[in-house]
């Protein structure tokens, strides 16, 4: 036990240390506040930019389906309709698939297979949206136009009530195709969230259920899903948030038309895609530019609400 080198402890003077602490706390706080300020500034500047349009058209702006740059009459009706319809349709397609993926990965798949499939799903989430757009336009659109849409018209087009949804010229582009592409894009988000929350179910619950003779499906339905319901809905909302704001992929396949159609094959428009397309040709100070900013504000509010709900539902269980 001879000379153990002991580093001399040299405390900085107490005052200097206190100053450093305060400085660091201040810097950290400003970094945090900056995010809040940025968010607020974006909302405020979108609102100010959109104000001339809100003032000119009033509340009917939200539902007016006119978009006529020649007459300077603008309404958010068509893009809002297109945004909501494509996003909801995308959820209808994506949720069952994502549930299936998560169910398989957590309950059925052999252990060695879970990791590669899980990684593949996460990689799908990393594919840039422009790639989905091009794939959609060059691969999915011809398939939809040549096979899927004529088939759906044949099978479902004559049904009462819903038949009208499946009529119209099969051009391949339109609301249904856009929803399909969106579904592929949001499946990874929803599936990954579902898998993660399914894994949080305490093993003892499931084992007890198996112990009393439940099948895998009964365990899923009666134990896992009820236990994770809020988080699952939160994950779905996260996907919805992404679907609402998607721009490029949708622009490629939706047909970009400012009309409301009654058919799922009909073209439409979304808020994000109309802003992307019309922005470069909008004059400074014009009502058109202001209307586009107003659309941006509306999209912001919609996404904000959806994400707020998803946060609320995804918060960790307290009990």
């Amino acid at each position: 036990m001879s000379d153990v080198a002991v580093l001399p402890f040299r405390p900085a003077s107490r005052r200097a240390a206190a100053f450093g602490d305060r400085l660091f706390a201040f810097l950290a706080m400003s970094a945090g506040v900056l995010v809040l300020v940025l968010l607020g500034a974006i909302i405020v500047s979108l609102f100010i930019g959109g104000w001339p349009s809100f003032r000119a058209f009033g509340l009917p702006f939200l539902v007016n389906t006119d978009w006529d740059p020649v007459q300077n009459v603008f309404g958010a009706g068509v893009p809002v309709f297109g945004t909501l319809v494509t996003a909801v349709l995308a959820l209808l397609i994506a949720v069952p698939l994502a549930f299936g993926i998560a169910f398989y990965l957590t309950e059925i798949a052999p252990g060695w297979f879970r990791r590669p499939v899980g990684t593949a799903i996460e990689l799908l989430a990393a594919v840039p949206s422009i790639i989905y757009g091009m794939w959609g336009f060059f691969v999915i659109v011809p398939i939809m136009g040549d096979y899927v849409e004529p088939f759906l018209t044949d099978q479902l087009g004559d049904l009462p009530v819903i038949g009208g949804l499946f009529q119209g010229a099969p051009f391949g582009t339109g609301l249904l195709t856009a929803a399909l592409i969106l579904a592929v894009m949001i499946i990874p988000f929803i599936a990954a969230t579902m898998r993660d929350v399914f894994n949080t179910v305490p093993a003892v619950f499931k084992e007890s259920a198996y112990g009393v003779g439940c099948t895998t499906w009964e365990v899923m339905r009666s134990i896992v899903v009820p236990y994770t319901r809020a988080s699952v809905v939160g994950g779905i909302m996260l996907g919805l948030g992404r679907a609402l704001g998607e721009t490029m992929a949708v622009t490629f396949v939706i047909g970009n038309t400012n009309r409301i159609t009654t058919s799922l094959f009909g073209p439409g428009n979304t808020i994000a895609s109309i802003v992307a397309l019309e922005f470069p040709e909008s004059q400074a100070g014009s009502l058109k530019l202001s209307s586009l900013l107003a659309l941006g504000f509306i999209l912001f509010v919609i996404s904000f609400i959806v994400l707020a709900i998803s946060r609320l539902l995804l918060r960790p269980r307290s009990a």
Binding site: P69, V70, G172, N256, N258, P267, E281
Partner: peptide, 24 residues
């Protein structure tokens, strides 16, 4: 530079119009 179209589908850019016409 953009109008209220009565019929048809929109595509982005010359290339988008050309590709859509080619496909349909």
């Amino acid at each position: 530079t953009s109008v209220k179209w009565v019929a048809g589908n929109g595509a982005k850019g010359n290339d988008g119009v050309a590709a859509t016409v080619k496909q349909v």
